[in-house]
């Protein structure tokens, strides 16, 4: 894990701030791999919108794609950036819990 990896986290979270993109990622993650057409059939968005969201996700390396006939097949990609960001987020959540527990203990006579 390197500092450079962590620096890209902002870009990643900007990409994830859009709810439809997250929905798309969840579906893609559950399927393993899919084309934009297949994803559009499952979601309340057009194929064109799906393709645009996938392009954004691919730019931040959350998905990768490979040609499959006339379309591209997308797969989710949890690379080190994601792992690092998730890890630090979990560390923060754990400290929130521990600090809350310290507060309760200290405030209890």
């Amino acid at each position: 894990m390197t500092a450079a990896v962590l620096e890209r986290a902002d870009e990643l979270f900007a990409a994830l701030a859009e709810p439809n993109r997250r929905l798309l990622l969840e579906h893609l993650g559950a399927r393993g791999a899919a084309t934009a057409t297949a994803l559009a059939a499952e979601l309340p968005v057009t194929r064109q919108a799906v393709a645009q969201h996938l392009a954004v996700l691919e730019r931040v390396d959350l998905v990768t794609s490979a040609r499959a006939g006339r379309e591209r097949r997308y797969t989710v990609h949890v690379q080190p950036l994601t792992a690092a960001a998730i890890w630090m987020n979990q560390v923060a959540a754990q400290w929130d819990e521990r600090l809350a527990a310290i507060k309760v203990l200290a405030e209890t006579p």
Binding site: L12, F13, A14, L16, A17, R22, L25, E26, G29, A30, R31, G32, V76, H77, V78, T82, A83, A85, I86, W87, N89, Q90
Partner: peptide
Amino acid sequence: EHFSSYESHSEGWTEIVRILADYAERNAP
């Protein structure tokens, strides 16, 4: 490296997306 194994598990992946979503909402510009 706990998270490396998540890639192949859709359940783990859903959890990751949820965590990322929480984070993104708190940190959105």
